[in-house]
Design a protein around this nucleic acid. Structure first.
Length: 585
DNA sequence: AGCACGCCGACT
DNA sequence: GTCGGCGTGCTC
């Protein structure tokens, strides 16, 4: 009997090995097998009869029993194909930690047949998490809860008294939790993306927390958003899928709405009004407007903490008179601006424009770089509030300054004031998700203060649809607007994106390499290939290039034949070619 | 990925 | 005459 094994190497095909006499193996079990002379860990994906001549023998099983079901192996293959990465690297990233020698033998995972299940549900509203905890407490069958990070997994494991599958606990207890979930001994298991394939006895409920969070797709295998993996899994095994978010991704909202699967568990009565501070023509010399200064004073006087949210660097050029950004005429995205350069280049289409003298919208003469970074804000705030504790690293400081993520761990009404120093640094990011990210932030700010505090938004765009929708607490109106835009401009969920990037040692080679890549995509029907652009517009050397690809839902299948030889050839002579499907930023 | 093989320059 | 750089190709 021959075993087909896949390894954590960038090689697509499986390798065939002889199973030694007396060794019993199953699909979904890990083994150590000699690969180019050394024993490496691989996953058994198939067992078959065949010609054994010239094949090496498997050295030993690594697991006494399978860790993945056959359905999980197939799901893993789908994930690998969708993300243009190898089956082996995907499966091994989605397997439990390897046991130490002498660990007890545990029962193999349940096999689940394909059944038709309900459409995925999208839960929004302030009560979504309380409702989830309630339902899970009384659940019939098993459940997997996937958080976007270890902290979230830890909080939920405690809240649900559930087994933990993420790396926040020891390997031994993660492994125990894996098999406890597989055998139905732990009804509820909590993990991060590494737990996506854990076997669960039916009927299973799959839960994705903070569905919109880009942290569900960090670098590394499996190179797909947990949302996509879970929705495929739910569809294949007929499980119920619940996705929770205060502000879902536009993709999920759109799908849930058309499947009549949107569930709203809301209570927004008593929430504070969002105070918008219009910063057009001001905010040149201080990051805090009067309303924000007052709100910080009030909160800290009452013994409450304040958080100030800042974006990244000065990223765009803005008109001080009408407030509009200088945008690419082709793509409509704001052009990134950095000091010391006299042209603006679009990140998407590479069109370069002379630095304009006047505002292209209103003809105003005052165009200035826009953006307050954390350092500048901290210095100014310390000066303004010398007696208060101000920190960029301690989220528990009286005034904490940082990126939107500092709002994440705060419980309901944890803060007395949230100030968004410059919403425009989010709205104006050279990324089609700018509106979505801005809306998420505003909503998260309201959730962090609830009825007990104040949200102050400083912006050049008080009339932006994301601000308007947040101010009126009208989720649906935001999504309607955003979906219309996405449909007109051909962005997800209507078309699918991929980003190809290359790196070389010399500028000449880098340019030749990206040109080769672009040529390889010539003539593929339904594919839009955007012109290549240097990766860092600010950098003077052009060793890194990227280009964006747009296509239909089957984009990975379209790209695979063209990209495979490039991914291999790219590795020669210090060249690196990478492709990322469905980039989140 | 990771590792061995092999072909050219610098050193004993 | 030998060491070792890295470019190249393969892994059951």
């Amino acid at each position: 009997v021959i075993a087909d094994i896949v390894f954590d190497v960038p090689v697509w095909r499986a390798f065939a090995y002889v199973i030694p006499r007396g060794m019993e193996l199953h699909r979904g079990q890990r083994v150590a097998a000699p690969l180019r002379g050394r024993a490496r860990i691989g996953m058994v994906v198939d067992l078959r009869y065949g010609d054994e001549t010239g094949l090496q023998a498997i050295a030993r099983p690594v697991d006494a029993v399978p860790v993945l079901s056959r359905a999980a192996l197939e799901l893993g293959r789908w994930v690998a194909e969708e993300s243009l990465s190898s089956w082996g690297s995907t499966l091994l990233a989605l397997s439990p930690p390897v046991a130490r020698r002498g660990a007890p033998v545990i029962a193999p995972p349940a096999e689940i047949g394909p059944i038709a299940g309900p459409p995925p549900e999208l839960w929004v509203g302030t009560l979504r998490e309380a409702r989830l905890a309630e339902q899970l407490r009384a659940i019939d069958g098993s459940a997997l809860v996937v958080a976007s990070d270890r902290e979230g997994a830890g909080r939920w494991a405690e809240r649900l008294d559930a087994a933990r599958l993420d790396s926040g606990v020891s390997d031994a207890s993660r492994r125990d939790a894996w098999f406890a979930a597989a055998r139905g001994r732990a009804r509820i298991a909590v993990g991060t993306r590494s737990a996506l394939l854990v076997p669960l006895p039916p009927p299973a409920t799959l839960v994705l927390l903070d569905e919109h969070d880009p942290a569900h797709k960090p670098p590394g295998a499996p190179r797909l958003h947990s949302r996509e993996v879970l929705s495929r899994r739910a569809a294949l095994e007929g499980s119920r899928l619940l996705m929770l978010s205060a502000t879902p991704s536009v993709e999920s909202w759109w799908r849930a709405q058309s499947a009549q699967a949107l569930r709203r568990h809301e209570r927004t009565e008593g929430w504070p009004d969002i105070v918008t501070a219009d910063t057009r023509g001001i905010l040149r010399n201080h990051p805090l407007t009067l309303p924000l200064t007052r709100a910080i004073e009030d909160a800290t006087r009452r013994g409450r903490r304040a958080a100030l949210i800042v974006g990244r660097r000065a990223a765009t050029l803005v008109c001080s008179e009408c407030g509009s950004f200088v945008r690419c005429k082709e793509c409509g995205v704001p052009l990134p601006f950095s000091r010391g350069r006299n042209s603006l280049a679009c990140r998407l289409c590479t069109r370069a424009e002379q630095l304009p003298e006047r505002c292209p919208t209103c003809g105003g003469r005052r165009l200035s770089p826009f953006g307050w970074d954390a350092e500048r804000v901290e210095a100014a705030v310390r000066k303004r509030f010398p007696k208060l504790g101000v920190s960029r690293s301690d989220a528990d400081a009286q005034i904490a300054i940082g990126p939107p993520s500092i709002l994440k761990p705060s419980g309901p009404a944890a803060l007395g004031c949230v100030g968004i120093v410059a919403l425009d640094s989010l709205l104006g990011m050279p990324d089609f998700r700018g509106g979505e990210r801005g809306f998420e932030l505003l909503w998260a700010a309201m959730e962090a203060v609830r009825a007990e505090g104040r949200v102050v938004v400083q912006t050049l765009h008080p009339d932006h649809y994301a601000v308007e929708a947040a101010r009126t607490r009208d989720l649906a109106s935001f999504y309607e607007h955003e979906i219309k835009l996405r449909s007109e401009l051909g962005y997800p969920p209507f078309r699918r994106l991929a980003v190809l990037s290359v790196r070389s040692r010399t500028e000449g080679e880098a340019h030749a390499l990206i040109a080769d890549c672009a040529r390889a995509f010539d003539g593929i029907p339904g594919l839009t290939v955007y012109p290549a652009a240097p990766r860092d517009a600010a950098s003077t050397t052009r060793l890194r290039w990227r280009l964006m690809l747009k296509g239909p839902a089957e984009l990975p299948r379209l790209l695979a034949p063209a990209i495979s030889p490039l991914l291999e050839r790219g590795r020669r002579a210090g060249n690196v070619v990478e492709i990322e499907m469905d980039p989140v930023s």
